[in-house]
Each structure stands twice: as C-alpha cells, then as structure tokens.
Simulated scan of single mutants.
Amino acid sequence: MNSFNDIVRDLDGVIVTGANVYVYDSSGGLASLFESDGTTPKANPLVSDALGEIEAWTEDGFYSLEYFWNGRKRLIRSNVLIGTAPLDTAVISAAGYATALEVGTAGGWYDSLAAGAADPAVAEGDGYFYLTGSRFYIGQKVGGVGVQKAEFLTTASGLIGMVTGTPLGPINGLSPAADKLPYYTGATTASLADLTAQARTFLAAATAADQQAAIGVSAFIRGLLDDIDAATARATLGVVPGTDVQAYDGDLAAIAALTTTSFGRSLLTMADAAAARSAIGANGSPTVAGSSGTGWAITLGGGIVITVKDITVAAGSTTSQTYGNGHTYSVFARAWIAGDDATGDVSVTVASATSGLSAASVRSNASGSVTVTLFSIGQ
C-alpha cells in the first residue's frame, strides 16, 4: 500500500478548491481509499482542500482519476501508477522468471523479446525482462509472443512522469536548492520561491494564535485581534467612554478648538472667586458693616468705602463728627450732608490730612438743632 497526492489545477494553472476526484481501480470500479494508517477508510471521490491538494492511501497498482469541478468533468488521467506495478500471478510463478537474468542477451536481459515479438529462447509461459532506452518492462510469453505486464522508467524524472503524470513535469525540470519551494508560473512552467526558516515556522504553527506568535504579534495584540466587537476592543484597550476616558461632548470639542493663552489657562486653576477677581483686577461684591446709631461702612472694592451716619448738630455750633461705623480713610475723603432743611444752614468740611481721616467738621447756622445724614466716600 502506498500514498498518492496531487494538486488540482485548471488549464491556466490556477489551484481549484472543492474539486471532486474519483479514483477507479484497474477493474473500472471505485478504488478503496484509506487514511495514512492504512485501515481507516477515506471517501471516494476525494475533495481538494484550500490548497487544491488531494491525498489518500491505496493498494499498489494502476488507477484512473477523473476530475470534476463546476459541475463538469474537467480532466481524466489514465494508467496512473501508485506504488510498484503489480505483476501477473503467472509471471511471478513462471520458472523462466527466476532465470531470465542468466539466459538472456545484452548482459542477461531478454531485450530481444519486445511486446508482440517471439523468441525461441523464451519458453511459453515464462516471464521476461526487456530493457530499451529509459524504459524497463516485465512481461510473459503468451501464445508464442511477448505480452507486456508492467512498465517502469529507469530515470528519476521518467519515474515521476509515469507515476504522477505530466503536471509535475515543469517541477521536475527545476534544480532544487536550500530554502526554496517550487510553484507553477503557468500551465506548463514552474519556478522556485524562497521559503525561509521564518516562513516554515509560520506554516508549522498549529493554531492561529501560534501563527501570530510566530510572526512576532504580542500576547496583548493577540488578545485585541480576537475581540468580537468594538466595545470589547475598547475594554481591552482601556478606553471605555465614561469609564476610562471622557465621553464625547460637543461643548468640550468646541473649547478644544479654541486658541488659548497661558493666562487664560491659569484662571482655570484658581482656588476661589476671590483669587480669580484678584487675578483679573476685579472688585468683589460690596460688603456692609455697622448698625443703627453708629452708621454703616459700605466697602465697594478696590479700597473704596462709602460711610453713612445720622447726626444732630446744635444751633450755631461746629462739631467734629466721626464717619459711619468709625471708619478711617487712609488716602482721601469727601463728605456731604443730606436731610438739611433746605436753607443751607448746615455745612461740612473735611480735614486736609492725607491719612487718618476719621472725622469731618460740621457747622450749623440754624436757629435750632438740626438732624441730618453725613455721607462720606474715600479710600
């Protein structure tokens, strides 16, 4: 029992996958095919795989192969020898077979007994050998003439041509070299391609993961390649929106498109509103201090303070009146009176000192005491 294999190709040399190849024995029936163990049956017809290959094991002998694809018979190969050609039982048991090398001519061969020829030196029923050129026959004398029973070729190239047929002829014409792989370049031509150690390692890898590892794909990237969808891939990369990264926001995208300055960006780092106002030189919200009787001091920001205080001035007197809430101005102050009796008989003056301005001088020319409101502003 021996194996046989083939690569199914069309007339243009293109590999054909899914082709049905029927194998018939010498009787014309479907041959019994087996796996490489020689016992497990294999379906007949064979079906070419993704590389166009077919392979099976069967008994030695001559076979016919018929190739079908696209619903039609495309190729017939007849008299394909698998293994060693079987000899006719009569030839094997014939007495002359054992002594043929001794009694024939041309170094012991019965080379005078070609198929269909007669030779008195060969007895009826005896087996014989016949050598001519590159061909070697085994036959038997039947009915007075030589009958060919088996044919061999004496050269390696000829043997390949006989066993596998003409498709391997172009391959046979190549000169083998290290790290090379033969391939067809046309229906009747072939060439050699590089097959490096790295490529062989890849081809020998049993799984997709092993193949990826063979070409240097890291374990992390292999984990990414087998993710079933985008969400799983994002989880592997650690970029899940809203969990690992900021989800898309139109306002953020618009801000990102703006051209910013270092000062503008620094405002984003301010600890509180006061710090931000200080950075841009802005006043804070006014603050009011004081109560009824002592008056109020209203801070506007930037050091500007307004004071308010109700006072009573005796008739024909001048008094020093402190500002509301006892405020003291450090740089300048201005003061005015509101609530006069409209006769202009109450006036106010401010000390001219540039610091420590805590009171104003108020005079009344009225015939009686006057209650008015003392306003002041300064810094």
Rank of each mutant, 00 (worst) to 15 (best):
2 N>H: 06
2 N>F: 01
6 D>C: 00
8 V>H: 00
9 R>W: 10
15 I>A: 12
16 V>C: 10
16 V>T: 07
19 A>M: 01
19 A>I: 10
19 A>E: 01
20 N>E: 08
21 V>K: 00
23 V>F: 00
30 L>K: 09
32 S>I: 01
36 S>D: 08
39 T>R: 11
41 P>H: 05
47 V>C: 02
51 L>T: 01
52 G>W: 03
53 E>C: 07
53 E>G: 13
54 I>S: 00
56 A>H: 01
64 S>W: 06
64 S>A: 12
65 L>Y: 02
65 L>K: 09
79 N>M: 10
79 N>T: 11
80 V>A: 07
83 G>S: 04
85 A>R: 00
87 L>K: 08
87 L>I: 04
88 D>K: 08
89 T>E: 14
90 A>E: 09
92 I>H: 02
93 S>A: 14
93 S>F: 12
96 G>C: 03
98 A>M: 12
98 A>G: 13
99 T>F: 11
100 A>E: 13
100 A>C: 14
107 G>K: 05
107 G>L: 08
110 Y>G: 10
112 S>Q: 15
113 L>M: 10
117 A>I: 11
122 V>A: 07
124 E>Y: 07
125 G>D: 03
126 D>C: 05
126 D>H: 04
129 F>P: 01
130 Y>R: 04
132 T>V: 15
134 S>R: 15
140 Q>F: 07
143 G>R: 03
144 G>R: 06
145 V>G: 11
148 Q>M: 11
148 Q>K: 12
150 A>Y: 01
151 E>I: 14
154 T>C: 10
159 L>A: 14
162 M>K: 12
162 M>S: 10
168 L>P: 02
169 G>N: 14
170 P>Q: 11
173 G>Y: 07
175 S>A: 11
177 A>D: 01
177 A>P: 04
177 A>F: 03
183 Y>A: 02
185 T>Q: 04
186 G>E: 12
186 G>V: 13
190 A>V: 05
191 S>A: 14
193 A>F: 04
200 R>W: 05
205 A>N: 00
207 T>W: 00
217 V>P: 00
222 R>A: 03
226 D>A: 02
233 A>H: 03
235 A>F: 09
238 G>C: 02
238 G>N: 05
242 G>K: 03
245 V>E: 02
246 Q>C: 04
247 A>E: 10
247 A>V: 11
250 G>Q: 15
253 A>P: 03
266 S>M: 15
267 L>M: 15
268 L>A: 11
272 D>L: 09
276 A>K: 15
276 A>N: 15
276 A>Q: 15
277 R>T: 15
280 I>A: 14
282 A>D: 12
286 P>S: 14
292 S>I: 09
295 G>F: 00
296 W>V: 09
296 W>Q: 15
299 T>C: 13
302 G>R: 03
304 I>D: 11
307 T>K: 05
307 T>W: 01
308 V>R: 11
310 D>Y: 05
311 I>P: 00
317 S>L: 07
320 S>M: 08
322 T>C: 12
323 Y>N: 04
329 Y>H: 06
329 Y>M: 08
330 S>C: 06
338 A>W: 08
343 T>P: 06
344 G>H: 07
344 G>V: 10
346 V>A: 08
346 V>N: 12
355 S>Q: 10
371 T>V: 05
374 L>S: 05
376 S>M: 09
377 I>G: 07
